[in-house]
Design a protein around this nucleic acid. Structure first.
Lengths: 223, 223
DNA sequence: GTGCAACTTTGCACTACATGCAAGTATTTT
DNA sequence: AAAATACTTGCATGTAGTGCAAAGTTGCAC
């Protein structure tokens, strides 16, 4: 029995929880596989449900649309970043925390699904909806963390500051991902991931310097 | 006759153009009116079409969804900003151009429709999709302009710089709008609009100073 | 103004999305 | 083992969105 400790608050993976998680995973797996084989827009919710071994109706108990099912991949990706971000010490400057959190994204395990999703859906704009929402959801979480952290600091009550900061951090992360992907495509080699990490760090550095006008592009000290 | 000059490139508002524009306007008007009276999510495309005096099918010749019809309001709003942005001299620092362009948004004519849309859809998230897309579309345009402008400057070929800058500018504009709306709601008085303009300017100023950590909130010289 | 070409609107048919509901099945609790 | 709870499923229903071809407008040349 995996009952680790008497007063273990989290970790009661009951059968129901496990089943639900498995079903959820089966759905996204099926959706991704159909995306690979049939291409974006060429399969229906029913196809996914069949492939996942559930009913059409059950699909909608988990996701509200095909897009949402695929966007859960993006959500998973961004959630790792948020987790990292939450772990940073409260005293650390916000932008450094962001750099650290984003660096964690340049990890094969984490980016692989996202990179494949990008390659499969690029130029189709079918993901646009849910993907933008995923980023925005992440923004909202960064905002929440930032607000809490800055609550004590002078000027930390300034809503504008916190909103603008959170939004800009997300935009920079997004920018780095976009540039990386446009340069490397689905390349997941070590070199490529190193470049991604550098891009993520550099983009936050740009933010920290206020986009110092025509600075030499790679002269920003970044690691 | 409104034929102004012999070699007028633009301005051939033929009957067809005018009809289309009128239909388009009738649709958004009808959609907005239904939003007022029935509330978000409580009316169908057919309702809009009926109210606009066209067929359901014709609606889809103009917009791909209810959301899209309403989001055209946001598009119109953001297009004025882009127009202003395009008019700025190429030598001007990018962030100053952004401030100038955003200031133009604090105009009763421009914000009024958006403010109403916000009040009618807040907390319903029904607009989320198309609204995020509208902002992203604006971001893409800022990116295009910025890329062109920076092409000659040292480091201007740095895609990361341009992407991150465009995204951050949009995020700051969005942040200012959000804060303004959360403070003032649908208040369109002169004082309220002055505050909006100040927020827009301040948010870009924050960007320019690299979010100088816990700076005094209102000590940033802004006008 | 007549007539032809180009464009726009419309009705119809059809597929797919999305949700409520009630009955069935699995899991948990007692 | 029985009762309570949670999840799945099929069915019914209403709406979204698109292709197509017929009908209606507008533009243009003669």
């Amino acid at each position: 029995m995996p009952n680790t400790s008497p007063h273990d608050q989290q970790a009661p993976p009951s059968r129901r929880e496990l089943n639900k998680a498995a079903t959820r995973q089966a759905i996204t797996d099926a959706a991704l596989e159909l995306l690979r084989t049939k291409g974006p827009g060429n399969f229906t919710v029913e196809d996914i449900a069949d492939a996942a071994g559930i009913s059409r109706r059950t699909f909608f108990n988990y996701f509200s649309s095909t897009d949402a099912a695929l966007a859960s991949i993006v959500h998973g990706f961004l959630d790792t970043a948020i987790q990292q971000f939450r772990l940073r010490p409260a005293e650390e400057p916000m932008l450094e925390s962001a750099q650290a959190a984003l660096s964690a994204l340049a990890d094969p395990e984490a980016v692989a699904p996202l990179a494949e999703l990008f390659t499969l859906t690029q130029q189709s704009s079918l993901m646009a909806h849910s993907e933008l929402e995923a980023w925005d959801h992440c923004r909202a979480q960064v905002f929440a963390v930032a607000r809490e952290r800055l609550a004590g600091t002078p000027g930390g009550q300034d809503e504008l500051y916190v909103h603008a900061l959170a939004g800009s951090i997300i935009s920079c992360g997004k920018a780095a991902m976009e540039v990386w992907f446009s340069r490397r495509g689905p390349d997941l080699t070590t070199g490529s991931l190193t470049e991604l990490r550098q891009l993520l760090i550099d983009s936050i550095a740009l933010l920290g310097t206020g986009f110092a006008p025509p600075a030499s592009p790679s002269a920003v000290r970044s690691s």
